[in-house]
C-alpha cells in the first residue's frame, strides 16, 4: 500500500488537521471529529447535519458552508460516525428551528443516526428529522433487505436542500424538499480498480486488466456484476440505462452529475460525461445543469458514477442559488 499518510490508524485525525489548516471558513472539532461553519447561520433557520465514513472527500466536510451543510460528522474510513458525534453536532448547530439529518442508506449510518436522534431528542429537546438517501439503482430494493444505497444523489440533495434551508423554510418544508429530491434522483456507478482502505493495507478486491465492476457503491465493495472492460460509450450505456429504466424523466429538466471515484483523472471524467450526455439526449432527456468531477469518492478507486435528478424550475433555481463551500462554490 502506497499512500500519503503517517499511520493507517491516524489518517482521519491528520486529514482533519489539514482541512482546518486549509479552510479559514471552517471550524474543526478534533475531539468529536466534526466540521462546522466558522460562522453559524442565522437564528431561526433550519440546520443541516450530515456525516458518514471518511474516504468520500469532498463529501461531507467539503459541503459545509453557506448554502449547504452546517456540520459534517466524520467517521473512520468507510465507517459511519458514532451517535455521540452526531448528537454533539446537532446540539451545536441548532438555531431553534430544528435540525435535518441527511443520512446515506447504509445499515451502520442509519442505526448510528437513529441513536443520535433519540439522544438529541431526549437530551436537548432539539427537533430532529431525518432523510435517508437511497438512490443507487444497482441495488434491488425490497422490504426484506437493507434497501438501496445512498450514493451520488447525496451531493445534489445537500446542495438543493441547503439552499432551501438558507431561504428560511420551516423544518417540515425542508424535510418535504429533501424527500422530493430523494424520490426524483437515481445513480449508478462502476469501478476499473479497487480502492485500498489504509487500515486494511491492501486492495479490497482484485480486478483483472480486462474486467470492470458494474453497480458498485462508494465503499470499495465489489459491484453487482463483473463484466468485460468496455469503451467509455459502452460504459456510459451500462450506467445510464438502468437509471432510465428505473425512473421516467419525461420532459422535465434534469441535473446530471458525472462523478469520479477518486483515482480517475478529470480528462477521463469529461470524456465520460460527453458520452453520458449524448446517450441521455438520444433518449430525450433534457439536461438543465451538470456537474463533472470528484464529489463523492471511494478513496483511490478508479471509476465513475452517474446521477440524474428529475428537476423542475424550483429545484433548478435552488441548484443555482449561491453556495460557498470548499467542494461547491458559486454565485456569491
Amino acid at each position: 500500500m502506497k499512500k500519503l499518510i503517517n499511520d493507517p490508524d491516524r489518517v482521519l485525525a491528520d486529514a482533519l488537521r489539514g482541512i482546518e489548516a486549509a479552510h479559514a471558513d471552517l471550524r474543526v472539532d478534533h475531539e468529536n471529529r466534526i466540521i462546522y461553519r466558522a460562522i453559524p447561520k442565522d437564528h431561526g433557520t433550519v440546520a443541516l447535519v450530515s456525516g458518514g465514513g471518511s474516504g468520500h472527500e469532498p463529501l461531507h466536510g467539503g459541503f459545509v458552508g453557506f448554502g449547504m451543510l452546517d456540520a459534517a460528522c466524520a467517521g473512520e474510513v468507510f465507517t459511519s460516525p458514532t451517535p455521540d458525534q452526531m448528537q454533539e453536532a446537532t446540539k451545536t448547530v441548532d438555531r431553534g428551528a430544528g435540525v435535518l439529518h441527511i443520512v446515506k442508506n447504509y445499515t451502520g449510518d442509519v442505526m448510528n443516526f437513529e441513536m443520535a436522534a433519540e439522544l438529541a431528542a431526549m437530551e436537548a429537546s432539539v427537533e430532529v428529522r431525518t432523510v435517508v438517501v437511497n438512490d443507487d439503482v444497482a441495488v434491488q430494493d425490497s422490504l426484506y433487505t437493507a434497501g438501496r444505497r445512498g450514493v451520488g444523489l447525496t451531493v445534489l440533495l445537500e446542495k438543493i436542500v441547503g439552499a432551501g434551508a438558507e431561504q428560511g423554510r420551516s423544518l417540515d418544508e425542508v424535510v418535504a424538499l429533501a424527500e422530493k429530491v430523494n424520490a426524483d434522483g437515481r445513480s449508478m456507478g462502476m469501478a476499473l480498480t479497487s480502492c485500498t482502505v489504509p487500515a486494511a493495507g491492501k486492495p479490497t478486491f482484485d480486478l483483472p486488466e480486462d474486467q470492470m465492476e458494474i453497480g458498485i457503491g462508494i465503499h470499495g465493495e465489489p459491484g453487482r456484476h463483473r463484466v468485460q472492460m468496455g469503451t467509455a460509450s459502452e460504459i456510459a450505456q451500462q450506467l445510464v440505462e438502468p437509471i432510465l429504466g428505473d425512473l421516467d424523466f419525461g420532459s422535465s429538466p434534469t441535473i446530471v452529475m458525472l462523478n469520479g471515484m477518486g483515482g480517475t483523472p478529470l480528462i477521463e471524467l469529461y470524456l465520460m460525461y460527453g458520452d453520458v450526455a449524448a446517450i441521455l439526449e438520444k433518449h430525450g432527456v433534457t439536461i438543465a445543469r451538470s456537474l463533472v468531477g470528484n464529489y463523492i469518492t471511494s478513496l483511490d478507486m478508479a471509476g465513475c458514477s452517474v446521477t440524474v435528478l428529475r428537476a423542475d424550475d424550483e429545484i433548478v433555481s435552488l441548484w443555482d442559488a449561491p453556495v460557498e463551500t470548499s467542494g461547491l462554490r458559486w454565485g456569491r
Binding site: 467517521g75 465507517t79 459511519s80 460516525p81 451517535p83 447504509y106 445499515t107 451502520g108 448510528n112 437513529e114
Partner: peptide, 12 residues
C-alpha cells in the same frame, strides 16, 4: 462500543 466503533457493528 457505541461511541468508538461506528458502522453497523458499533450500534449492534
Amino acid at each position: 462500543l457505541v461511541t468508538s466503533v461506528g458502522g453497523a457493528s458499533g450500534p449492534l
